[in-house]
């Protein structure tokens, strides 16, 4: 059986047209393979392109070249060449993503933000909200906040909403961009336990964790992204 996520030869650069077409190479020849039940961690200093890699794997950034093969139910799709509608379908059913920051929508409650990915997949709304409650409870988000839109929450509270939203579904591939960055020790341990459960359930995880304790606890392998540093081009 193919691994759920196989990335090979992916390259990314930004061309800044407002800066006279300045080209900023970000990464080159990114190759990563994540097996079922494995948690692979992207390591390396800030600015090395770790978040950019996750964004490409989620279809949020376009790629200059290479392949991002995602396999689900025996079907393999190259996300690097997928149409917008295919990417949306992959996001709904296959690839989950916990971003660093929650993008809030006015007037939508924390509970509904968390339940939404399940409801979008056709699950019963009430049952989805119950599952969302259980997750928010586990992540120690005060009950008083559940019915409020998260726009005014603290960084740590927003992050827990974001984690709950990312973990509520059973997506076979999960991308994590520093999910524990603004959490206290107790909640970090909750997230470590949740990641362990995902691994046991066979989810392929690829993440960025600056916190050493979390990284040690969850990583099966660490890939140093400085290996994907682009060659300096001649101007």
């Amino acid at each position: 059986m193919s691994d759920p996520l196989v990335v090979s030869g992916v390259a990314k650069s930004f061309t800044m047209h407002l800066r006279g077409g300045l080209r900023l190479p970000v990464v080159d020849n990114v190759s990563v393979r994540v097996a079922r039940g494995e948690c692979v961690v992207l390591g390396g200093p800030s600015g090395a392109g770790k978040s950019s890699i996750l964004k490409m794997l989620y279809g949020n950034y376009a790629v200059d070249g290479g392949e991002i093969l995602v396999t689900h139910d025996g079907e393999t799709v190259d996300l690097a060449r997928a149409s917008p509608r295919q990417v949306l379908q992959l996001r709904r059913n296959v690839i989950g993503y916990v971003s660093q920051f929650l993008r809030t929508v006015p007037r939508v409650s924390a509970l509904d933000v968390v339940a939404e990915p399940l409801i979008a997949r056709g699950h019963d709304a009430e049952a989805s909200r119950q599952q969302a409650s259980a997750l928010l409870d586990r992540l120690n988000l005060p009950h008083a906040l559940w019915s409020l839109p998260p726009a005014t929450f603290s960084g740590g509270e927003q992050q827990r909403v974001n984690i709950a939203r990312g973990f509520i579904t059973e997506h076979p591939v999960l991308l994590l961009d520093e999910p524990t960055a603004s959490l206290d020790a107790q909640n970090r341990r909750v997230v470590i336990a949740m990641i362990d459960e995902k691994k046991r359930a066979g989810t392929a995880l690829l993440g960025i964790f600056h916190d050493e304790e979390v990284r040690e606890a969850v990583a099966d392998r660490i890939i140093d992204v400085t290996a994907f540093r682009p060659a300096r081009e001649a101007a």
Binding site: T15, M16, H17, L18, G59
Partner: peptide, 18 residues
């Protein structure tokens, strides 16, 4: 044209970047 978040977060064309 493309996915809304892709075009807004990683705009390719000079005018979209502007």
């Amino acid at each position: 044209h493309g996915l809304t978040d892709r075009v807004l977060d990683d705009p390719r064309e000079p005018y979209t970047q502007l």
